[in-house]
Design a protein around this nucleic acid. Sequence first.
DNA 1: CCCTGGCAAGTGAGTGCTCACTCACCTGGG
DNA 2: CCCAGGTGAGTGAGCACTCACTTGCCAGGG
Lengths: 203, 203
Amino acid sequence: MPMKAEPETAQETESARGPRYNEILTASIEVFSRTNYEKATTALLAKEAGIAEGTLYRYFPTKKDLFLECFRYITNQMVERYIDVYRRVGQDPRSYLIEVAKSYFEFLQENPSMRLFMAFVLNNSFDQDFRDELDRFVMFNVNATERMLRLAIEKGEIRDDINPRVGAWFFVGGYFTLILMSELDADDFKHPDFMDDLLKLFL
Amino acid sequence: MPMKAEPETAQETESARGPRYNEILTASIEVFSRTNYEKATTALLAKEAGIAEGTLYRYFPTKKDLFLECFRYITNQMVERYIDVYRRVGQDPRSYLIEVAKSYFEFLQENPSMRLFMAFVLNNSFDQDFRDELDRFVMFNVNATERMLRLAIEKGEIRDDINPRVGAWFFVGGYFTLILMSELDADDFKHPDFMDDLLKLFL
DNA sequence: CCCTGGCAAGTGAGTGCTCACTCACCTGGG
DNA sequence: CCCAGGTGAGTGAGCACTCACTTGCCAGGG
């Protein structure tokens, strides 16, 4: 149960952005990931959110803005989880890396509709705004992971023969592999020991 | 220098498919990866190939067929490289894994326009035909890698505490991470020791 | 308690544009 | 003169976005 100390959270400003803001966002995430950016027409987005097309444009100036808002909504949720983990085991880098990976894994399984967003952004990377968002999120993760790998090596908690920067890239890149696996319905993904076997590669 | 023993290779059947077949394919690959599937209009594809739009439809029944043909063209080139490596060092699983990874890495650097194709297919994975192509290529790689990891473990060439299946997935998933890195212009990608540091993670 | 004016929120037919694909026609080598 | 190979204006469908309009809520005057 989180504290209600800060009145300026996303939930509180909901009404300031309009009563349907959150409904539209979550419905749009569903549609975007069921199809893709181009196939998710504004007509369909509006229909699935239970509103008229015109209403959509009272909330978001363009379809692209709506999409980027969805992307931020998803990445913010992930980052919140990572911060939670950091609060719990930030002093123990090995546990941190394990917990973050597991938390991400759970997130993918709980929110199948959020899985494909990274791929969309990557695909639209010719567009600078899409690329900037992806860059922000990926580099945040790579840098945080690198810091933790360095610490873990210093503390002697993991093997010391790896380059922390390269390790961090492939730790984060593993997130994309998980997306790929779930897209291809790889059964390996569902094996109970999967995450432990995966982490053994690095740690 | 490959042998000219088999007359039914892609190159030989070129004229049977029409005199402009290869030109259209390579120009299309360039356009698809510079933009994306939806933004690569048939008008643009034709213009870049130096032909009229109508001609495009004498060679490929639909835009989607053209795209899938491009995808196969690229993956076939990659598979040929892997087969070459197998011929050279197939008896030495550790070398095989290293050589395949390096060969892929070189391929990405030599052919920047082929990098994004995997991401496109992933993005269009709601379409069964796109998904099937991706599935074919990824599973080919995962299975081959798993076989080699098993062999390498049996021979005691690499650490024996990893699950070969999971290792194979993340070895192949690493290919996507390389795409991500080059898209984000990560300088780490260009470091001379990069590949060696990367392989040390697994081997 | 009712009436009413104002206005935030919601609507959906309409608009102009772009696209994949077609087809009637052209061209040059044998 | 035949025809494989090439052409590009044309077509209908679908798109993002607009705008003149409707709805429902609530304040405050009678």
